[in-house]
């Protein structure tokens, strides 16, 4: 059996272009890809008959010598009709998709996304109830009730109350006053800790300043001021 070279190449190109288009997310391109792919397959079938010859028979000479193979022609007719019908259906469906969702692309499955999201939430919730520990105390992302107050800024509930108070304050001055009062009360209670921490911070800052030697006098002043504040307290 011999095949026309050009047709074989054409078939290959149809297949390649069809597969390329079908990999797109846009539905019209997928449709075009399917049409090319289907025609490629049909061309493949008709090529299996080998080189065509004319005419099939003149009605008198009934010998099958030199006749082209009729079976692929019967097969391809069926295949063409099927491809045609399915293309029409696909086109209608794509149009419907456009009417409903205004999108000519493949949509994600909500249920799939939901499963993915649910898992994340579940694992977080599990971590907070079962595994949350005292390592971060009340500073943990979702602390347990009665966690140790590690940095002396009150329990989460207290912090929330303060935040609410500040928010509720009628004017900015009053809000500042509240915030200041809170800071004072906390520093009073734990002055020793605070002072030490502040001093350390100052030392570290000064060291860096000396190294870099680009800081202005002003910056040093602020650092000094911070240190003083800590000492005073």
């Amino acid at each position: 059996m011999s095949m026309p070279f050009v047709m074989v190449v054409a078939m290959g190109v149809l297949f390649a272009a069809g597969i390329y288009l079908m990999l797109e997310r846009s539905l019209t391109r997928v449709l075009l890809g399917f049409i090319l792919l289907g025609n490629g397959a049909n061309l493949l079938i008709i090529l299996t008959a080998g080189r065509g010859s004319v005419p099939l028979t003149d009605g008198k000479n009934l010998s099958t010598e030199g006749m082209s193979d009729p079976l692929p022609q019967a097969l391809i007719l069926t295949a063409i009709v099927i491809t045609f019908a399915v293309t029409a259906f696909l086109l209608a469906m794509i149009y419907r998709s456009w009417r409903l969702m205004r999108a000519d692309s493949l949509q994600d499955d909500d249920a799939d996304l939901q499963v993915a999201i649910t898992k994340v939430i579940d694992s977080e919730a599990e971590a907070s109830t079962d595994y949350d520990d005292t390592e971060f105390g009340d500073e943990a992302e979702s602390p347990i009730r009665g966690a140790v107050d590690l940095d002396d800024d009150g329990t989460p509930d207290e912090r929330e109350e303060i935040a609410a108070e500040i928010d509720d304050a009628p004017n900015p001055a009053q809000a500042d006053a509240i915030a200041e009062a809170v800071v004072d009360s906390q520093t009073d209670a734990h002055s020793a800790n605070e002072a030490e921490a502040a001093e350390e911070a100052t030392d570290a800052k000064e060291a860096t300043d000396a190294d870099v030697a680009t800081d202005t006098e002003e910056a040093k002043d602020t650092n000094d001021a911070k240190g003083t504040k800590g000492d005073d307290a």
Binding site: F34, V86, F89, M93, R96, S97, L106, Q107
Partner: peptide, 14 residues
């Protein structure tokens, strides 16, 4: 031909 069925149908048909 509801939106959800069309979405699922497109994947299935292709």
């Amino acid at each position: 031909a509801t939106a959800e069925r069309i979405r699922a149908g497109v994947t299935y048909v292709i």
